[in-house]
């Protein structure tokens, strides 16, 4: 009985507390950088597209709202021919970002993306691709991967020995 009265009193005291509500949109909330908002595709430190079209974001997506097609440039660097996110299906779970092995796909603190027309929520690669590296500044997948691409030959990646000379006889 006493506890009930104490509860009532405690709750009543809340009358004089400061309110936690942020009055959006007059007042803009401060959103942490790892907020899961609008998805973007970032570029590497050298300005080249980070996405290598590995399809892992697409398969991780629980609502199957990511679709892409891989293609390659003449030097064997793989990138997406198209990259489409249907934001009208997206649940902003961030699984795509977790699955991405190259930090290409990232969720941003932007959440103001309402539309009157659902079709306008289908974002293509040109809508998604930004010109910077996003949250992760220095990572470049192709610099660590063993694959040779234009401007990076075999053995030139990080932590790699020069290519083996198959005809060499040295032990």
């Amino acid at each position: 009985m006493l506890s009930i009265l104490r509860t009532l009193w405690t709750v009543l005291l809340h009358t004089f507390r400061k309110r936690a509500t942020v009055l959006y949109p007059e007042e803009k909330p401060s959103i942490p950088p790892r907020w899961r908002g609008r998805i973007i595709l970032s570029r590497g430190p050298d300005g080249a597209e980070r996405c290598v079209a590995c399809y892992l974001c697409a398969v991780a997506c629980p609502v199957d709202c990511i679709s892409l097609q891989a293609t390659e440039d003449e030097h064997g660097r793989r990138y997406p021919e198209f990259f489409r996110i249907n934001f009208s299906r997206c649940i902003f779970c961030g699984f795509c970002e977790e699955a991405c092995p190259t930090y290409a796909i990232q969720l941003t603190p932007d959440f103001e993306m309402c539309e009157y027309n659902r079709q306008s929520l289908v974002y293509e690669k040109e809508d998604l691709l930004i010109s910077g590296p996003g949250k992760y500044h220095d990572y470049d997948f192709y610099r660590v991967a063993g694959l040779a691409i234009g401007g990076k030959d075999k053995g030139q990646a990080e932590n790699e020995e020069p290519p083996v000379d198959v005809r060499g006889l040295m032990p």
Binding site: V63, D64, C65, I66, S67, R84, N86, R89, R118
Partner: peptide, 14 residues
């Protein structure tokens, strides 16, 4: 694990 069901044809119609 087939992916992209809701995005594959989204460029034509959502």
């Amino acid at each position: 694990r087939y992916s992209g069901r809701t995005a594959l044809l989204a460029d034509i119609s959502v």
